[in-house]
Amino acid sequence: MLKMKDVCKIYRTDTVETHALRGFSLAVEDGEFVSVTGPSGSGKTTFLNIAGLLEELTSGVYELDGRDISALNDKERSRVRNEKIGFIFQSFNLIPELNVFDNVDVPLRYRGFDAKERERRIMSCLERVGLASRPKHFPAQLSGGQQQRVAIARALAGEPRFLLADEPTGNLDTHMADSVLDLLKEINEAGTTIIMVTHELTLADRANRNLFVRDGEIHDEPPELHLAAAATA
């Protein structure tokens, strides 16, 4: 279970103080598929960064599986990221110098699995995303959809309890976006909790629950933006 209560995130420079999240509270139950939508600059990515332990919160409480995350040091945060969370990014974020196999291998090496176990997991995940025949290909040799599938395989390889997706279809055409979403749905149905940040309301509707972020605050009900968009659709 992922639980945030009154989480605030403030970015400070010498002259400016920006409140990216204000009293942000939510609870995501195990096995949920939650979408988070909102306009640019609303705080979606900041929420994702904090949920994924990529950034520290300024105040509030964040618990992941009942554990207070704010008390963890950098090493422990890295470990939680590696073991409990899988990331899917808009720009895929594959490492260009590594082939498909080595890319999926990256989090597994940090986990400390032996070579045999890593290979089993890598090939199993590549099979699941339909790329088992291309372990030696480099990212540049793959289409956008294939690259995102590799990224999903990488996120799944560590068998995380949570999958955080940041605009996972943002760089894909409609057909590829659908196939990636189908895959996410399938993963969710297999038991993994998914939180997907997107600004596309049609994609957000594929989730079980939709949350809306505006000005750093969370809303369970769709704001006017959503209503307007729905009306024109």
Binding site: S78, R79, I95, Y110
Partner: peptide
């Protein structure tokens, strides 16, 4: 960016 990605995937600072 690659280093940031590695960190996101679980790399500690020493690694």
């Amino acid at each position: 960016r690659q280093i940031g990605i590695r960190r996101a995937l679980g790399a500690t600072r020493p690694s």
